[in-house]
């Protein structure tokens, strides 16, 4: 979402807004109309409307929390033997939370270094004209709907990864996360994580690039003038300046990866929690909700809504953490 803001800001910021001054000379007659007495009521109405709109936002967010809690309550209060085939709510939700966190963590592990590399390539390595086009392409890619990434994952990526998985499990099978036998369809948690990584890379990249471009030119030139190579200049001037921004970009990607539904729902062939990433199994909260919601009713519906509440709380915690990190470094960097 930050991306959108950056994008529009970039689109307009370059232009000199003060120039409008020359464009709006009010004729005397129009001025009299503008400042006439009848405007007094308008002032009140307009400020009232603006205030109301602001209040609506507070109400909506409170309503989200309240309705989720109200609809989730029956699942939390009912006898635990009636929930999720007698499993009870917490034993039901625990593997889902673990699966969600593992999938998001692997996705970020893949996406973060690559995104920083791409952002550096666009901001400091590519020729200027090329870098503008690349930035534009990255922004467009961030806008591709998630269901399309999911469809790509299931039809192209999963089959393409099967040979790799076979090799991994035969070479590194003694590590529990690569234990075989690998899935023959490739619809595993690792595939889902890779699809998630592909989805969050454009998001993290576009925020990182924005921040890398804000590095003070003087710092960069000072480093180069002292004889630093380009990589040393990046390590001395660009990365320290951008660190909080990178963290917030990663958190943004994490929030997206945690809440992402469609890619996982389409790609992962779900099952109980298992350690191996190469076998089908595991599940995330969002995908579990999407897959079961259409048939759910009564108490099972309440259970799914309670699962959604848990997801809401997890992403809320991540976002607040990101805000806290940014605010701690705000004065020193361009990450605000």
């Amino acid at each position: 979402m930050t991306r959108t803001v950056h994008e529009t800001a970039r689109a307009t910021k370059g232009r000199d807004l003060t120039a409008t001054e020359t464009k709006t000379p009010e004729s005397p007659g129009r001025l009299r109309a503008l400042s006439s007495r009848q405007g007094a009521a308008g002032d009140k109405v307009f400020s009232g409307a603006a205030l109301a709109a602001g209040a609506i936002i507070l109400v909506v967010l409170v309503a989200v929390a309240v309705f989720l809690v109200v609809q989730a309550m029956p699942a939390l209060l009912a006898p635990q033997s009636q929930i999720a085939n007698g499993e009870g709510f917490w034993p039901y939700i625990f593997p889902l939370v673990v699966g969600t966190i593992i999938a998001a963590a692997i996705a970020l592990l893949i996406a973060t270094p690559i995104s920083i590399g791409v952002a550096l390539f666009i901001s400091h390595y590519a020729p200027r004209r090329l870098s503008q086009i690349l930035g534009y392409i990255i922004d467009l890619l961030a806008a591709i709907p998630s269901v399309i990434f999911g469809a790509w994952g299931i039809s192209f990526l999963a089959p393409a990864l099967v040979p790799g998985y076979t090799w991994l499990s035969s070479a590194l099978g003694w590590i529990p996360i690569f234990a075989g036998p690998p899935s023959a369809t490739g619809k595993t948690l690792l595939t889902a994580s890779i699809v998630l990584a592909v989805m969050v890379i454009p998001i993290i990249t576009s925020v990182c690039r924005e921040i890398f471009l804000q590095t003070p030119k003087l710092h960069e030139e000072a480093a180069l003038a002292l004889g630093a190579t380009r990589w040393e200049m990046i390590r001395m001037a660009v990365l320290p300046f951008a660190r909080p921004g990178i963290i917030s970009a990663v958190m943004l990607g994490l929030g997206r990866a945690l809440g992402e539904t469609m890619a996982v729902a389409l790609v992962l062939s779900s099952g109980p929690l298992i350690a191996s990433l190469l076998q089908s199994g595991n599940q995330t909260i969002a995908a579990e909700i999407a897959l079961n919601f259409p048939e759910a009713s009564g108490l099972s519906l309440n259970t799914l809504i309670a699962a959604g509440l848990v997801l809401f709380i997890v992403t809320l915690a991540v976002n607040l953490l990101a805000r806290w990190v940014i605010s701690r470094h705000k004065e020193f960097s361009g990450a605000n």
């Binding site: 936002i57 989720l68 809440g259 539904t261 997801l311 992403t315 607040l320």
Partner: peptide, 22 residues
């Protein structure tokens, strides 16, 4: 409002769907 808008930005889309359904 600024804080709440930031929080809303991070709402997973499926939670928004659950909210409307609820």
């Amino acid at each position: 409002i600024t804080l709440f808008v930031d929080v809303m930005t991070g709402i997973p889309s499926i939670v928004a769907g659950l909210f409307a359904a609820a």
